[in-house]
Design a protein around this nucleic acid. Sequence first.
DNA 1: CCTACCGATCGGTAGG
DNA 2: CCTACCGATCGGTAGG
Lengths: 192, 192
Amino acid sequence: MNAATLLFADRGFEGTSIQSVADAVGIRKPSLLYHFPSKDALRAAVLDDLLAHWKRELPSVLAGATTGKDRFEGAIKAIVDFFVAQPVRARLIAREMMDQPDVARRAIAEHIAPWTGLVTDYIRLGQESGRLREDVDPEAYITQVVTLAIGTVALGSVTQSLIGSGAPMPQQLEEMVRIARVSLFKSRPKES
Amino acid sequence: MNAATLLFADRGFEGTSIQSVADAVGIRKPSLLYHFPSKDALRAAVLDDLLAHWKRELPSVLAGATTGKDRFEGAIKAIVDFFVAQPVRARLIAREMMDQPDVARRAIAEHIAPWTGLVTDYIRLGQESGRLREDVDPEAYITQVVTLAIGTVALGSVTQSLIGSGAPMPQQLEEMVRIARVSLFKSRPKES
DNA sequence: CCTACCGATCGGTAGG
DNA sequence: CCTACCGATCGGTAGG
């Protein structure tokens, strides 16, 4: 499954033969097909595994980020870091979103939406307490932040060179967090 | 070429057979291979066409946006609108970035980077004139905006359902422009 | 988990 | 731009 995840993320589902997965694991193709009855079953299992992982990890990430004084500050960085730490999964989910929008939509709506929904609640809370900008659309905002995080990680190796010299990855991540933060919090004096 | 662009964007390069392209055009496979000596040649031609189109259109888009008083205001919306208006091309470039990072990097660095570089110059100009935030990293900022635009369009049909109810596309685009704007301009009173 | 094997489709060529 | 055809690889099965 790990091998399949890597190959699917790297070359795409259609660009990956079950033979190549079997090779990576060191078994014969029919042996692989014993564990996963078809290539599509393998795909489904890989996607399930990905979502199960996120479903397991997200609560603690969000819990850790939404506790204490700087819960809003922390939440943004936590969400961004979460995707940044898993470039393979980010690329895989980006591919699945393009390859099978319907499947990905259902899977995400079922497993992930509840947790992002939690974040929008926090945002609304912050808006009422006057710490967050009122012009933020909570649902659209969190969607944009996640899209940016996935996009930056999945396409990062190329977007770096959008500019002549190229903006190195660490600076891209810093700027991403800055953008997410500034567009959420009410402006205040300086920070550092 | 249009047929190939659509199919590549939709199902990916590996997921598209030259037979299916030929079918879409209404000719036989060998006839297609007469015009494009190999599948890879077709891919290269499609990518070239995409970049040529952007190279042709970008100047006028940027020129129109960077003239007059509200040149900064306009530039953001122009860049975002530019990608939003071409969902097929956005999806294709996103795929090519993942499938062949090296090829995409070279192509973008050569054809697109000069124009985005122009935007970073404008941003620096705006920073000096005091209208734009000083904490903006121009290179990283424009990279992030483009990534967000491409990502939103390419993955949009799925990210909409990141939230239970789902944030409709128009609202996502509005929020994207807001995020890009707020994180670039110095804060000021209300707008509307 | 393996060997042996299958029909279908793949990208591509010959030759007109 | 076509018909006819090629070897290689595809996902998958039989049977042990």
